[in-house]
């Protein structure tokens, strides 16, 4: 697979995020073009996604909202390269994911995506540091380097002193921090967060959201799925799904006034 060069992300990061100067167009790193995903259930065909198009630019902070059955999960699975669209194109860092085979998809996930799950999904037999290392292991990054990077990100999320604990020895908030460090360690193009605070109490949830805000300010691109309008309001853009279609895309609470309006399809 030809993984196209993306330029130095941190270079752009300085000018990305909320502090981007007016008028400057950041590069599009993720684009959905008329994505459709249908399942066959018995004799009927269910159209979970029915023509979804939007663009995410580097440094964007998006929230995807919608009621259950609206196609949220399906869209997230497609954006996460865990699934392929039945029709349409999904461009992630310039490559059309719809055309890739299973191994290439795994490689894309490992290199360009960071996952944060509702239930943390840490591997219980591994320590904090080892959990953070997992994505690097599959990219064949040498153990020593992986260890250093994992340590660095553990410190970044505020877990520098707990790196040798097992997940079950940590609180829920701490576990989610481990998961965030794991999502960052491969320096992905996009961080995908699926109801990242769903299993946390509201205070801890706020902490985690604060951490995401911070990551966004540092220039990272975040797409999160949530059903909570208050949480969605922290994003720059809110994409509302309804019956497998985009209901509307509207600016969120963090929307930098007047930067741009995403094109509607």
């Amino acid at each position: 697979m030809a993984v196209s060069e993306l330029g130095d992300r941190t270079d752009n990061a300085a000018s990305a995020g909320g502090s981007a100067p007016h008028g400057e167009e950041r590069p599009v790193i993720l684009e959905a073009r008329d994505i459709r995903r249908s399942y066959r259930m018995g004799d009927t065909v269910v159209h979970a996604l029915d023509g979804v198009s939007f663009q995410v630019r580097q440094g964007d902070y998006w929230a995807i909202m919608g009621q259950s059955g609206s196609g949220k999960s399906t869209l997230l699975n497609l954006l996460g390269c865990l699934d392929r669209p039945t029709e349409g194109a999904y461009l992630l860092g310039g490559d059309d994911v719809a055309q890739l085979d299973d191994d290439d998809l795994a490689e894309i996930r490992g290199q360009r995506l960071g996952f944060i799950f509702q239930s943390f999904n840490l591997i219980l037999q591994l320590t904090v540091l080892e959990n953070i290392e997992v994505p690097l292991f599959y990219q064949g990054i040498p153990a020593r380097e992986a260890r250093e990077r994992a340590q660095r990100y553990a410190e970044l999320v505020g877990l520098g002193g707990r790196t040798h604990h097992r997940p079950l020895e940590l609180s829920g908030g701490q576990q989610q921090r481990v998961a965030i460090a794991r999502a960052l360690v491969n320096e992905p193009l996009v961080i995908l967060a699926d109801e990242a605070t769903g299993n946390l109490d509201s205070a801890t949830g706020r902490e985690i959201l604060g951490l995401l805000d911070q990551l966004h300010l540092q220039g990272r691109t975040i797409i999160m799925v949530t059903h909570d309008p208050n949480i969605a309001n922290r994003a720059e853009w809110v994409l509302r799904l309804k019956d497998g279609k985009i209901d509307r895309i509207e600016p969120g609470g963090k929307h930098p006034e007047g930067v741009r309006t995403p094109e509607r399809h």
């Binding site: 996460g80 299973d102 490689e107 996930r109 799950f117 994505p135 599959y138």
Partner: peptide, 16 residues
Amino acid sequence: TREIGVRRALGAKKRH
């Protein structure tokens, strides 16, 4: 199963 799913999401190929 869950662990397998997580590992796959984090970049594990089938052969891994």
